[in-house]
Design a protein around this nucleic acid. Structure first.
Lengths: 267, 267
DNA sequence: TCAATATTATGATATGTATCATGTTTTTAA
DNA sequence: TTAAAAACATGATACATATCATAATATTGA
């Protein structure tokens, strides 16, 4: 029996174990977990387009000195809907989904995040609880900046406020467009939209057509707000029409033009 | 024949007519249109809780000097989805709906606005086109503040930025909650939600139970994202269950507790 | 005031999609 | 490697709600 006790999820992991019982896989895991995370000053993640990129070096330095980071295994929860926000998360590496719990435990994916994205800022800014649960879609490295430091940085940087406004505006726009999509489109149109969203968010593998994310059918169903069975049927149908092909948990796009058309058949 | 040519909807109405052909109704109309709009300094509309209330008097004065206002008859369009934003609208008096055009011309009400609310700020802030069309639900008086003046005011008032962030955050939260509602709830649950939203937005008449808005069945359908026929049937059902009664275009709430319960039957 | 038009109402039918059932394949863990 | 569990797949059926049709009211404008 191996005992792993995580003492505090927001500071560095503190793990108690017996060395003698470490397996090869655990050692591999630790090696993977042990990567170098640069300071905010040197972080090249969002190519100057990220939320915090507008900050002067001194502020980035301040954030770096006060941030902490953690490794999240695929499937691990980063924060829970209903919990109080006490900082923002910055996704250094990995992929994250934001899910909201609906009725009868049915989940709905409301947003996707990739490297360089900021999570949990909305709840923090409106001093609210998290409105969704963040789950790692892939092994991820995520930095955490405390509430105090972040709010202090906003106060001293009007440009940051403006960046936040831009980000919120764009999220709001997407959310409202989403609403129309989900209420007025068929399952097929919604599944097609979900595939396009995955592609535009996570990009492709080196072949240039396989979407760079492994998602199971029930997760795609959660994106398109339908049942797993309907998602399976619809994906098969799209495959038979030659628009996509299904390679295990990967989706390959073959006919982007037709796929885009199939998102708005009767507009 | 009476010729009315509106030269510019953003400045004061410039109307060309022949005096001899003025009808009694037109004169009445002009009288109604001719109301006193206070300066932003003296505007008591949002009781200190509005977006612009945090501003110092000097800024409010500046806004006032540069604002213009216009009367919108019920049903008139204030701005159109797809048009470029060149200022913000502040609803002095009246009621407004924001509708988005879906497929096959089907409309969807995405937000409601009442006295003191600001409209069109999202598009302005992200230098975007309007994502929805604003239509007066009632005879309304709306002030318009130009882009330049508004952006200038933001720059010199960090508090205003923070207020805008709060507003956007809350809109985003609502939009994402809406998503869950519309995709996972039944027509009956959505219609009940729509009624509650109308009540919480526009309040009641003096009897304390008649919702202070006249809405036809197709507009309620647009709120709940269903068809007019289904809206009619569902409203009748709610009436038969004694939760509401229908008084022409007015809705009277009789059993608020049950109505709230009917918005989340299977949560 | 009255005709024209829009809105409300209600019944019959069609249809997309959820649900249930069952079997196959893939993944996971000992 | 193998058993157990999870994910994928597909068919049959049920059901909510859209669509179509038709009529009764209510509203509007000359």
């Amino acid at each position: 029996m191996i005992h792993i006790i995580i003492l505090n999820i927001f500071t560095e992991n503190s793990i108690i174990f017996k060395y003698s019982e470490l397996t090869f896989n655990m050692l591999l895991d630790m090696k993977r977990k042990d990567i170098d995370i640069p300071t905010c000053v040197h972080c090249k993640n969002s190519n100057g387009k990220g939320l915090l990129c507008c900050l002067p070096e001194s502020d980035k330095q301040l954030l770096s000195e006060n941030k902490c980071h953690r490794y999240y295994k695929k499937g691990e929860v980063i924060f829970l809907e209903g919990n109080h926000a006490n900082g923002i998360f910055c996704l250094y590496k990995g992929k994250v989904k934001l899910v909201k719990l609906g009725k009868e435990g049915k989940e709905q994916i409301v947003r996707l995040s990739k490297e360089g994205d900021i999570l949990g800022y909305r709840s923090l800014l409106s001093a609210d609880v998290y409105q969704a649960t963040a789950v790692a879609l892939d092994d991820s490295y995520i930095c955490h900046i405390s509430k105090d430091i972040f709010l202090q940085t906003i106060k001293s940087n009007p440009t940051l406020s403006f960046e936040i406004i831009q980000l919120l505006s764009s999220d709001l726009k997407n959310a409202e467009q989403h609403l129309i999509n989900f209420t007025q489109k068929t399952v097929k149109e919604r599944i097609s939209e979900a595939i396009l969203l995955l592609a535009s968010t996570f990009g492709y593998l080196i072949d240039g057509k396989t979407i760079n994310i492994k998602m199971n059918r029930s997760e795609i169903a959660e994106m398109a707000s339908t049942t797993t069975e309907s998602a399976i049927r619809t994906l098969s149908a799209l495959q038979e029409e030659g628009m996509i092909s299904l390679n295990g948990k990967y989706i390959v796009i073959h006919n982007m033009k037709e796929l885009i058309r199939s998102t708005h058949v009767n507009d």
